[in-house]
Amino acid sequence: MKSMPDSWRRETKPHKFCPGCGHGLVLKALGMAMDRLKIADRTVFGVDIGCSLLAWDFFNADTIQTHHGRTVPVIIGAKRARPNLVGIAYMGDGGGYAIGSQHLINATMRNDRILIIIVNNTIYAMTGGQMAPTTLKGQKTETSSRGRDPKYEGFPLRGPEMVASFAPEGAYVARGSVSHVQRLARYLERGLENQLQDRGISVVEALSTCPTNWRTNAEDTWKFLEKEMTDYYPVGELVSPFKRDTQKEAADLETCH
């Protein structure tokens, strides 16, 4: 694995994310996928508000940082105007599943030819650790100080499962994790390929870490990601239009670990 994908912009590294933040790994996986497909010259990368905005100068790719929850419509507007562009909308779980959820649902219904990446760290991080749609049951945040109570606050939202439940033909839906960067990169690559082949929408959720707001040390951070989050949010492809060669795929993904 290269330490730094070619599509990363070296001049803006080290990046601006907190120590232990998963964004750097998601963006590494994305960079690897972009490198493999050689699409940096026709990519429009859109970033949301929240921590994802810190990626506004991350890539050697044309980038638009927009408002909270509005990355999906901005990228759709660009993609529909110029279909040869590769549109990537990058956001957190608040942007994807709360304030921008109408865009996620309608973009999926329309099968817009873009890749939506939603980084799930179970929390609103930039604003200081409030409860997100993805906050786990019992998880303490600044706005669920006694732990998320499903009776009042509902159960955590499984975004890719929701999207998969009505994903149209040609859609690609997956959930990866920063604990398996190669596998996440493969999902993102497939999502992009799906767009390049004009098949349909691609939605990839990436399980990620936020030790700053979780208030966890390295060990507990990784434990929360690999155990609690992964138990509730299973990693894998939910919907794929690609022809399956299960044996090859299993071997392929095995090398990704």
């Binding site: 429009v44 859109g46 638009i64 927009t66 408002h67 509005r70 419509p73 901005v74 990228i75 759709i76 507007g77 660009a78 993609k79 529909r80 105007a81 110029r82 562009l85």
Partner: peptide, 10 residues
């Protein structure tokens, strides 16, 4: 926002 995206795409 889609209008802005389209405009920014030229």
């Amino acid at each position: 926002f889609a209008t802005l995206g389209g405009i920014m795409a030229g």
